[in-house]
């Protein structure tokens, strides 16, 4: 609590963030601001640092240099309670990462009950309500391996939402899904956006990024090369390299 949250200030702010793994520099110098109730999309080739950026924001990776603020509080300060920070940020992973030894309901209620001290009945009621909304009401008692990929990913989104996070990070959540299942997961993201959730998502679904984002960031070589509204970045990219990347995407028939 080094600084009090500034009303109207960004929910998430990154300044000169650097992250290396051994000799490879994954994030070189990243600056980013995410306003409350907006959706920021990270696009860029594989290996451009999108996932690492998200993992750093959630403190799953420790940054080498630079700083990150959440709600005006510097979370990269070594004295920060990292668990407390993660409690305020939800993450949905590419490979769902549901706990296979728990039912869908247990997956969702684990954190509310163990971390937030919510009673079992209340946690389950909230979980069922969310599941119902996402069309998974009948699946509460199933184990994850009995669900389709799309259902698993929707359950993972419910799990992340169940702790009522301030910020939701989505790491290529449709990359592991069959094409016909992508739609159902993206519908859920639209719903969540409509509820006013602040989100940062890494994605290869350019059409979706264009539709849902308030801000699009193009990453290359560990820096945010271009940042702007979807209309600007997709319609009239300023950088030559952004243009080239989007050109390749169009060629691949994904935009």
């Amino acid at each position: 609590m080094s600084e009090t949250p500034v009303p109207g200030g960004p929910l998430l702010r990154m300044e000169s963030v650097r992250k290396t793994f051994g000799d490879s520099v994954v994030l070189r110098d990243v600056d980013l601001e995410v306003a409350p109730h907006t959706v920021t999309t990270l696009i860029g080739a594989s290996g451009s640092g999108k996932s690492t950026l998200l993992r750093c924001a959630n403190l799953l990776e420790e940054v080498d240099d630079g700083a990150i603020w959440l709600d005006g509080e510097e979370i990269t300060d070594p004295v920060t309670d990292q668990d407390a920070v993660r409690r305020r940020i939800g993450v949905v992973f590419q490979a769902y990462n549901l706990f296979p030894h728990m039912t869908v309901l247990e997956n969702i209620t684990l954190a509310p009950r163990r971390v937030h001290g919510v009673g079992r009945a209340e946690a389950e009621a909230h979980a069922r309500e969310l599941l119902e909304r996402l069309g998974l009401g009948a699946r509460a008692g199933e184990y994850p391996d009995r669900l389709s990929g799309g259902q698993q990913q929707r359950a993972a989104i419910v799990r992340a939402l169940a702790v009522r996070p301030r910020l939701l990070l989505l790491d290529e959540i449709t990359a592991a899904l069959d094409p016909e299942l992508v739609g159902e997961v993206l519908d859920v993201v639209r719903d969540v956006k409509a509820d006013g959730m602040t989100m940062v998502l890494a994605t290869h679904e350019m059409g979706f990024a264009r539709e849902v984002s308030d801000q699009v960031c193009f990453l290359e070589d560990g820096v945010i090369l271009e940042r702007g509204t979807p209309e600007q970045v997709f319609g009239d990219p300023r950088q030559e390299r952004t243009r080239r990347f989007l050109g390749r995407i169009v060629e691949a028939g994904r935009l």
């Binding site: 993992r55 959630n58 799953l60 668990d83 407390a84 993660r86 409690r87 305020r88 940020i89 939800g90 993450v91 992973f93 490979a95 990462n97 549901l98 706990f99 684990l110 954190a111 163990r114 971390v115 937030h116 799990r159 992340a160 702790v163």
Partner: peptide, 19 residues
């Protein structure tokens, strides 16, 4: 990735191990 998922939910290292 199971650890990562648990920690991202705010579980402590000990809770992650236990649950």
């Amino acid at each position: 990735s199971q650890r990562a998922a648990a920690r991202s939910l705010g579980l402590t290292a000990r809770q992650t191990l236990r649950h």
